[in-house]
Amino acid sequence: MISVLFAVLTALSNGSASVLQRRAAMKVPDSEALHLSLIGHLVRQKVWLAGIALVIVAAVCQAVALATGPISVVQPIFVIELPATLLLAGWMMRVRAPRTVWYGVAAVTVGLAIGLASAAPVDGTDSVRGADWVPTLLLTGAFEAVLIVAALRVRGNARAALLGLAAACGYALTAALMKDAMSHLGPDGGALALLTSWQLYATAVAGVGALFLLQNALHAGSLVAVQPMLTLGDALISILYGVTLFEEELRTGWWLLPELAGLGLIATGCVVLARSPLAADTLAPPPPPPRVS
């Protein structure tokens, strides 16, 4: 229960942070895309700094959740981040949530409940063998590179979606590294063992990289293009890490049917939320200024 509680707090903190970061990113010139100077523009905005503060809160909550529960349980709970983001954006911008939004929220929530209850993830090991990280990091890096190269060839929401998926992969990797790092706090380790583990510093690098990709995704297009890829991608890739790295077990056989049904409900809910008037009114990028001939 502790892991579930802190996973929910993480999702709510991340959703709030996404809204604040998106509002800040809308004020940055297009010429700063995929440049480090983008961060320079953002850091001068109080709303962006508030979003970063919530990211830090989310990181602490996520560390507690991963230290007390399997990654296959903790990370999928983050799919509630999308409905939380939209509802928070509507509240902050004083836009009333229409009925379709509540349908989407219900679909995501019910789908998550069905999926987790059907999969019934069983915790595996708390740590990962060092040798297992080598192919994982190589494959993850290759996947990220393909997504970034593809994103550079397109513009608008297509680029935002690809970079959002790349950020999701980065956050899933961050979670896996964080869980492995937290295992050093066990009875045979302690604070010193944690501080001397390479996983802790790799977590920081992966997290910063994922954050950079997310800022560029939010800058490239609307939040409705980014958030579904971010939340669903994070959940599915994290489950993959949980099964392959931490030897967590999921139900198979006929249980795959309700698991797929739950995933379908989540995907449907995300689409409904992405197409809702609330998303269009509050989260779409501002129209470009008129051209002067």
Rank of each mutant, 00 (worst) to 15 (best):
Q21E: 12
N157Q: 12
W91Y: 13
T10I: 07
A160S: 12
V272I: 15
A210S: 14
G156C: 06
N157A: 15
W133K: 10
W254R: 09
V105N: 04
L165Y: 06
V146C: 00
F143Y: 08
R23K: 07
L245F: 08
M229F: 15
A166L: 05
S197C: 11
S3M: 01
A280M: 13
S72C: 01
D180L: 06
V108Q: 06
L265W: 05
L163W: 04
Y201V: 00
G253K: 05
L213F: 10
S18F: 14
R155E: 13
A202N: 12
P76F: 03
I114S: 02
Y241E: 01
G130R: 07
G124P: 08
R155K: 14
S238Y: 04
V105R: 01
L200W: 09
A235W: 01
L165H: 03
A172G: 15
S3T: 07
D126G: 15
I239S: 00
V95A: 15
A58L: 00
G262E: 04
L66V: 04
V208A: 15
P288K: 12
L116F: 00
A210K: 08
S127C: 02
S16E: 09
I77Y: 03
I239P: 00
A33N: 13
A150N: 10
P286W: 00
A145K: 04
E144H: 13
K46N: 11
T136Y: 12
L195P: 05
A267F: 07
A166D: 11
A175T: 04
E247M: 11
H41D: 02
L177V: 06
S222L: 06
L38N: 12
L66M: 08
A274K: 03
W133P: 14
E247D: 12
V149N: 08
A158N: 09
P76S: 09
G209Q: 05
A166V: 09
L42R: 02
A113M: 14
L139H: 00
L86Y: 12
A117V: 12
L54C: 02
A151G: 00
V105T: 15
P287A: 09
G15D: 03
T136W: 12
A274Y: 00
S3G: 10
G253C: 06
A65D: 04
L257N: 09
R159Q: 15
Q75R: 04
A279R: 06
L38I: 03
A204C: 07
P76G: 09
A168T: 05
Q62F: 13
M182G: 03
A119M: 11
P290M: 05
G269V: 03
S183D: 11
A284V: 10
A181N: 08
V292I: 14
T231I: 10
A267Q: 02
V208Q: 03
W91S: 12
V154L: 03
T68I: 05
